[in-house]
Amino acid sequence: MMLLAEQVLNGLQYGMMLFLMAAGLTLVFGVMGLINLAHGSLYMAGAFACAAVAAVTGSFWVGLAASLAAAAGLGALVEIVVIRRLYARDHLDQVLATFALILVFSEGTRWLFGSFPLYLSLPPVLSGAVTLPGGLVYPAFRLAIIVIGAAIAVGLFWLIGRTRLGIRIRAGEADREMIAALGVDIAKLYTMVFALGAALAGLAGALVGSVQSVQVGMGEPVLILAFVVIVIGGIGSIKGALVGALLVGMTDTLGKALLPTFFARFMDASSATSVGSALASMLIYVLMALVLVVRPTGLYGARI
């Protein structure tokens, strides 16, 4: 039971991290209708900004703030200079242009920081472990990621559902021509949405960089999972991104923890680990397929 509780928390932590990545992606895709393959590069930019600023200032918190500012600023710049020219183009042009941005960001980051990975040191308050009810000892930083993700989810629900900006975002998703005709500056709205999505991706990169290493190309693997999340949850839905991220995080984590143990009952340990890990990696795509069979637009996507 202790092992299961620990893996559930790991799944929550992984899911919350995927949510930070997927929330910005689903906003951009839902509101702008833009396929942004460079979203993972903004995730990487946030991680490198956090590592670089934390190394100079000696403060992890300043680095975390820098990750938000750098990713949001870079996202706004990219939207104004490149993305704005792609709204009227078809999805193939968007894919090609944003794929080119991946190459530009990767080589630019390698030129600025080199090819060697960077590492972040956690502040003392987050570097230890916390004893939870029941005697479970769990890393404080992983618990902090769960809390941060939950807080940002609540903040996004409030922003989208209760603020004037949220009303414009929802209206832009439903009928961008109409809100433009009503006098809303659609270009400014798109820049703000893109910068918000970039900031969330940059924050996710900084948090992950604190657990793993910060390196060139770290954004592409998580981008694939973020697309899986928004397909499961429904494009344009923050609630769908949260539910989809938690489902993917739990499925992946529990699958990797429990399947090797299950196969070890009738296979040798090495084969059980190999087969169990391989099947666990497939589970999230099986989950996506099952959801699409039942609801082709995702769990919370608009019905066609």
Rank of each mutant, 00 (worst) to 15 (best):
G75V: 00
G75L: 00
G75D: 03
G75R: 11
A76D: 01
A76L: 07
I80G: 03
I80L: 09
V81G: 06
V81Y: 07
I83Q: 11
I83E: 08
R85C: 01
R85L: 15
R85M: 02
L86F: 14
Y87A: 07
R89N: 06
D90V: 02
D90P: 03
H91Y: 04
H91P: 03
H91I: 02
D93S: 14
D93T: 15
D93C: 09
Q94W: 04
Q94V: 05
V95C: 03
V95A: 04
A97V: 15
T98I: 05
T98A: 00
T98Y: 04
F99N: 00
A100C: 07
L101A: 05
I102S: 05
L103R: 12
L103N: 12
L103P: 10
F105H: 11
S106M: 13
E107G: 03
G108F: 09
G108L: 09
L112A: 02
L112G: 01
F113Q: 06
F113L: 01
S115R: 09
F116S: 13
F116C: 00
F116H: 11
P117G: 07
L120P: 01
L122G: 06
V125I: 13
L126N: 12
S127K: 14
S127D: 13
A129Q: 14
T131P: 00
P133H: 13
P133T: 14
P133N: 08
P133I: 15
G134V: 11
G135N: 06
G135S: 04
Y138P: 02
P139Y: 08
A140I: 01
A140V: 10
F141G: 07
F141H: 11
R142M: 01
L143H: 12
A144G: 03
I145Y: 09
I145W: 06
I145E: 06
V147F: 13
A150R: 03
A151P: 00
